[in-house]
Write a protein that binds this DNA or RNA. Structure first.
Lengths: 212, 212
DNA sequence: ACGTCTATTGGACATCTGCGCAATAAGGGA
DNA sequence: TCCCTTATTGCGCAGATGTCCAATAGACGT
């Protein structure tokens, strides 16, 4: 293979690992899979990463971190906290997200067995919660939300979304994908003292726009 | 090893697999682990189970099914729907549950890779949801709850509990174990039209009583 | 043109995995 | 007591896995 600069090669390894993990799941991604995906030798991966744990952690960081950044950008385009949260829900319940959600399932399950992946999973999960909490506080300051404990509400909202998405990803057909967004927003309305169905329900297409 | 009857040996295999899975996690439990735990040969396991997938599914069924049965018994001892739900929450957030929760994480992650385990996980998850839904309907009929869609509320309550418990199990310290019960009950109060903190908060000891 | 640095190779190594199978032995019925 | 069923053994097989390492080759400065 053509000799690349360390930074370029590192990025390529992470990208390849992510591509494999998206298909086979994080837990099933092996050194040889990643090497084959790049068309290089397997020894090369260990020249850049001390262990497979580190590779998976970097790949997961790339996936979940990029999603988080995209969601933040989409939320910034909104004019108030209500719309921002609607946009958040929309991007979280996108069709492609459910395909990528297997990665979160693997990360949570492997967290106790792979230290680096566990640390990354923890950090990103907290980052998602903080994004919700910040938006809730903003809404309270603007007078559109009523919320005693934004941090707690943020954890509840995120955990509800995770719990529902988990069913969609792990047990297809048990919960219809389409209702997750509606159910989660209904719960949020109860949390922030808004009447039922008062928050704008984004269409699926709005969600797709975030993905590109 | 002493020759056992097929049913007795089958049960022993499941029990041994469960013991190993509790320690190492479902995803990390191997044929040889189970054989070593019983003090027998590995070939014996395949004499009773066609594949490791079936062993893990049976072990998981034993674990989650027993928990479900115990919880049902504890709920039956209560005199109304409010107390029943409080008892449900208490048994779900017991200290030992968090140790056993790794098994659910593994089951969800492995569901797409191991058909038998996936089917079992799905069936038990639905059973837990139905237990909540039935109690909600009972509460509505008794006039203590207001709930438009008990099935949807049940999925929300269960998913919230799963999402929060997941954080406790996968990312220790991110959420304090003690607040999960309180947060989940607060959310439930919003769902069923009860004023905040009106549902009885069970003590941790009540939860422990369910375990024995 | 030469030498040095290091990206890259390709395979060795030890270990683990699920599964299958021929041989063994235990136990119950006749 | 003998025999037949079958529970149990113990190892083999084929493949996978993470990690390591000596050898190779490509790029860059002098």
């Amino acid at each position: 293979m053509t000799r690349l600069s360390p930074t370029a090669r590192r990025e390529e390894i992470v990208a390849a690992a992510l591509r494999v993990a998206t298909t086979k799941g994080l837990a099933n991604t092996t050194v040889r899979d990643v090497a084959a995906e790049m068309g290089t030798s397997s020894g090369l991966i260990h020249h850049y990463f001390a262990s497979m744990d580190d590779v998976l952690a970097a790949a997961f960081e790339e996936a979940a971190g990029t999603d988080l950044a995209k969601t933040k950008v989409a939320m910034l385009a909104c004019c108030d906290a209500s719309e921002r949260l609607s946009t958040f829900f929309a991007s979280y319940t996108r069709t492609e997200e459910y395909r990528a959600f297997q990665m979160w399932l693997d990360a949570w399950a492997e967290a106790s067995r792979r230290p680096a992946l566990g640390a990354t999973s923890r950090r990103l999960n907290v980052a998602w919660q903080e994004l919700i909490a910040a938006t809730l506080i903003e809404g309270v300051n603007d007078g559109v939300f009523v919320c005693d404990d934004p941090a707690a509400t943020a954890w509840r909202v995120l955990s509800l979304l995770d719990g529902l998405s988990l069913q969609v990803a792990a047990h297809p057909g048990v919960i219809e994908r389409a209702v997750v967004l509606d159910w989660a927003m209904t719960a949020l309305e109860g949390e922030v003292g808004r009447p039922m169905r008062s928050l704008p329900r984004p269409s699926t297409d709005e969600g797709r726009a975030v993905a590109s």
